[in-house]
Nucleic acid binder design. Structure first.
Length: 258
DNA sequence: ATGGCAATGTTTCATTGA
């Protein structure tokens, strides 16, 4: 089974491109980030026409996540559910076929170091860590996918010296990401490609994509039991090409049957 | 072929992204 994650940068602008990609790729599930729409604005029909149902946590204009899946889409959970009255829509989870628990997340960008947005980002990662502790205890086959807005290592950055200490690459952000891994999660791409370079985001400006000036900030983490089933992980760079792409490319995970 | 910001709402500019 294939599971994918993709920051689509606006469902209104990207619905046609995303549904065409689904029809061609046929994953069991896709987690989308930055739908930038309220739930009622999510175009369910073109997804349903392809056999996908949707779980949507929307927000007007910003953020917003959705999971679309064929087969099971059960035990839907929207938000971190920790009692915080955070209005930002950044996480959805559901149980898929084979009992795979799928978490779709959009971590905060963080703005500039030292800003309120940066403090919020670090707090959000701590809340996420507590959420994932609970999820790991309940779901042996956990797959946590999304836009983490952290490049974990220098090999995940096209110009490590230029980005050193900057947002997405700072020591604090990398430590926050490392604490998630420390809970018992495996970076599924890195597991299979220890020295690989597979960026998931390229700046729209300054010929970012043609020059491959990218960052690996979208990740698929898995519990150890899920990681043992992982057969392939790849970035679909073709989805970044052509007319009006998202600035992110999808990450596709292939799992062996249970 | 992969091309020099883009999406959305607050809308003819501001905000946010990374």
């Amino acid at each position: 089974m294939k599971i994918a994650t993709w920051n689509i940068n606006g469902i209104k602008a990207r619905a046609e491109r995303v549904t065409a990609w689904l029809a061609a790729t046929e994953p069991t599930a896709l987690g989308m980030q930055e739908i930038k729409s309220v739930e009622s604005g999510f175009p369910r029909e073109p997804f349903e026409a392809l056999g996908y149902r949707a779980a949507v946590l929307g927000q007007k204009g910003y953020n917003g996540v959705a999971i679309v899946a064929r087969g099971r889409l059960d035990e839907i959970e929207l938000g971190l559910g920790d009692g915080d009255d955070d209005p930002q829509a950044r996480l959805a989870a559901a149980t898929l076929d084979d009992g795979v628990r799928f978490v779709c997340l959009y971590a905060p960008n963080g703005g500039a170091l030292g800003s309120d947005a940066y403090a919020y980002k670090l707090r959000w990662f701590e809340r996420l860590a507590r959420y994932l502790e609970r999820a790991l205890a309940r779901h042996p086959l956990l797959c946590v996918c999304g836009d983490y807005n952290v490049a974990p290592g220098d090999r995940d950055v096209y110009d490590p010296e230029a980005f050193r200490g900057q947002v997405l690459c700072s020591d604090e952000e990398r430590a926050a990401y490392g604490r998630l891994v420390g809970l018992g999660l495996v970076d599924l791409y890195r597991q299979l490609h220890p020295d690989g370079v597979a960026y998931t985001w390229w700046d729209y400006r300054m010929l970012g994509f043609p020059k491959n000036h990218g960052l690996r900030i979208d990740h698929a983490l898995g519990s150890h039991a899920l990681a043992a089933r992982c057969r392939a992980v790849a970035v679909d760079r073709n989805a970044r090409k052509g007319k009006s792409p998202s600035d992110h490319a999808p990450l596709v995970v292939e799992l062996a049957a249970g």
